[in-house]
Amino acid sequence: MIMSKDCESCQKKLVDIFYNEENMNNEVKNHIKTCHSCKEFFGRLYQMKDIMDKAKIEPSIEYAEILQSFKEVEIIKEKRRNLFDLILFIIISGVLLGLVALLIVEKYLVEIIYFQLVMYIIIPLSLPVIIKIRSLKEEYNERY
């Protein structure tokens, strides 16, 4: 069936009116009064609504599913944090290794080896001091 332009535009307006997007105006009212197909179309919209509303779905709230989403998000966040830490570690180690390499290129290899030797000796020697400070702190915490 070929529809006139007036009917086409009127039916679009009728859909808008049906879905509360527009108010019924005189132009549309007058058209419906004289046009049988548009009047029928408007009536069919209500019929369609009655039928389509039978298939309305209202699922109940799955609280467990929502809580599960929060848990999953925590796992994702933890993974992201771990990845960030890994990237930071790679960057810092890269920079330090780069610095060592640069010092070697600049002919400071002997100094680096001396520095390492000194560190190897000092760190174990400093352990008793560190343990003493730690135990003093713990003692203080226990007391107060």
Binding site: K56, I57, E58, P59, S60, I61, E62, I66, L67, S69
Partner: peptide, 13 residues
């Protein structure tokens, strides 16, 4: 959580 609960049915439906 409350926001998600109140909109759950709409999204699922």
């Amino acid at each position: 959580e409350r926001l998600l609960q109140s909109n759950y049915s709409i999204v699922k439906g």
